[in-house]
Design a binder for these strands. Structure first.
Lengths: 208, 208
DNA sequence: ATCCTTATTGAATGATCGTATAGTAGATAT
DNA sequence: ATATCTACTATACGATCATTCAATAAGGAT
């Protein structure tokens, strides 16, 4: 007996769903971040990402042109999320203290995020797209910190080199982040937070 | 006219050279570090490494069993070099000040080394061999710093939490390292050095 | 209901990945 | 010289890599 072709599918069940370019791009970025958190840059492969996003292999090229540009978009997304989290924290605690607190909010200061940042930083030297993305965002962050520091100094009628302090603070918080991410038992969130406040209070006096 | 077989080779020109297992292993580690510095973990491939070491593809398996174990050996080598550099600096400037100086010696604090560390750190979460290597070395470094801090405090008859200071200092210096490595124009070696001295002198008084 | 746009699929491609392994040959001891 | 040891080469292997592209179909517009 011949095998009969089964009914293709019911008309109400499309084989895949179409999204706007914008939406699908965001889904791919999200999937990319998950892969980076899971296995670093080594796990950032077209196959992994598309499987995670529930899409087929061709979509990264279609929406981003290349994997490298998707990586740059992932960097931008990470920064934008962090930046939004900072804004939320500033809402609650205005000024420099809020920005410091924001660095240690659970959605920012956690091992997963660190693993993503580590993977991204590690590729900056290699990827031109990533490098230019980094430069712009770092400047943005630096400016934001620097202004908060100036404001805090003005409010206390003291004079500090805000730009230098901002660079050093970013280095300090990234370093704390790094240690905590590699081995959380070595450095608690609270100890890291306290170290950052101490850093500023040395030259600005009590912030809280 | 038939092509003649050329003389195979003169007896004095061996096709390859044999090294002791130890020597060849060191050559492979060196090649691995060069690859990591050049292109991060992505460039740490068997082909790249063996080409760099002037050896054939099979040698990594032969001497290390797997690529992963070679990576762990690279971590160990990086730490050992840094540690040796620290010892040399302590010879010149004994105590805590020497250890701080050592962090900013040209052979330690440079963009190439940072790229290697970044690549290694990024794999710690993934590679068990690397993780255990890291744990041991980090403890070693921590102990060394911690003791230098205690000694400095004792000499000044002050009391500090040496362990905590050591953890924070490592975080700070790693962060400074990171910023400098990603973009040297943002943070000079001198500014980084000064920040580290300031960090300790806050609780210990002048170190120099 | 039928176009039309374009998001999407999925197979094909050629390169490169890490590892296993069989055979080769340098260095050393005898 | 000869034998022995093992560092070493080089091929083969299957898996996976990023990218290309022609065909397909979803879903809004008309």
């Amino acid at each position: 007996m011949m095998t009969e072709t089964p009914p293709e599918r019911s008309a109400a069940a499309p084989r895949f769903r179409r999204y706007s370019g914008e939406t699908r791009a965001a889904m791919l970025v999200e999937a990319g971040l998950i892969c980076l958190a899971r296995g670093g840059i080594t796990a950032f492969t077209v196959d992994n990402i598309c499987r995670e996003a529930g899409a087929s292999r061709g979509l990264i090229t279609h929406h981003f042109g290349s994997k490298d540009r998707l990586l740059a978009a992932c960097y931008a997304a990470m920064y934008d999320r962090m930046s939004a989290s900072f804004s939320a924290a500033e809402q609650e605690t205005p000024g420099l203290a809020g920005l410091i607190e924001a660095n240690f909010a659970p959605e920012v200061f956690n091992a997963e995020s660190l693993r993503v940042w580590l993977a991204l930083w590690g590729e900056i030297a290699t990827s031109e797209a990533l490098r230019s993305e980094h430069r712009a965002r770092y400047q943005d962050y630096l400016f934001r910190m620097s202004r908060a520091i100036s404001d805090a100094a003005d409010a206390r009628s003291t004079r500090v080199n805000a730009h230098e302090l901002a660079v050093l603070f970013i280095a300090l918080s990234d370093g704390l982040w790094l240690e905590h991410g590699i081995d959380p038992t070595m450095l608690s969130r609270e100890a890291a937070r306290a170290a950052c406040f101490a850093f500023f209070e040395k030259s600005l006096g009590p912030l809280r």
